[in-house]
Amino acid sequence: MVEPLLRVRDLTKIYSGKGHRIVACEDVSFDVYPGEVLGIVGESGSGKSTVLQCLFQDVVPTSGAAYLTSFEGGERNMFEADRRERRELRTHRMSMVYQNPRQGLNLMVTAGGNVAERLLAADWRRVSDIRAKASDYLVRTEVPIERMDDFPAFFSGGMQQRVQIAKALANNPELVLLDELTTGLDVSVQAGVLDLVRDIQSKYGVTAIIVSHDLGVIRLLADRTLVMKDGHVVESGLTDQILEDPQHPYTQLLVNCVTN
């Protein structure tokens, strides 16, 4: 019996202010097993990105728990981590690829430097080693190595996204979170980036959670899928099963839209 790498239980995020209360996600529970890709699909506003932001601790959840096997033996809720532990989680255990590369990259730092930042955070102190490792990751993500010392500000959107993926892979995180990674790209570049992620996944067996509104992305990458609507998980199961035999009316609608 394989133990899950990540267990999420009753994750809830409610934004409340004067006279309004917005439920971004509520009672979301799921497991992620080592080496698998979990897809989360849903329309915008369904709370799928909120789930990722909570896991990467960009956003503080209202309630709920998440247990990562490598964090205190999976015994302690990682939302209770103090600031220092949280940073350690973000630099050593998890990484995030944002929809907008500007959020995940420092555009005023070279492509190699962006990848190096995670290595430096892990106390790498030899420039030649750092450069060798960073170029290794950039090669994996098909960023031309001669652009290593250029600024991502001058890169195309697709290449920025590839640098971001290289950065996310640096330091071998246990869990990679991918948030709408192809949404801002045009169709031909999308295909390239998706192929890349699939290749990397099959070669290096990365565990990932991928959030997308695009069933095509989910079909290509995800082993298992959660379908979210209005902040709730309405259906979950193997990706093939969900796409071929959707049970929930919303999933049926979603699958229909694509196949027709």
Binding site: V109, T110, G112, G113, A116, E117, L120, R125, V127, I130, R131, D149
Partner: peptide, 9 residues
């Protein structure tokens, strides 16, 4: 450290 790395590069 990143700033120092960039400086070296």
């Amino acid at each position: 450290w990143l700033a120092l790395y960039e400086d070296v590069v």
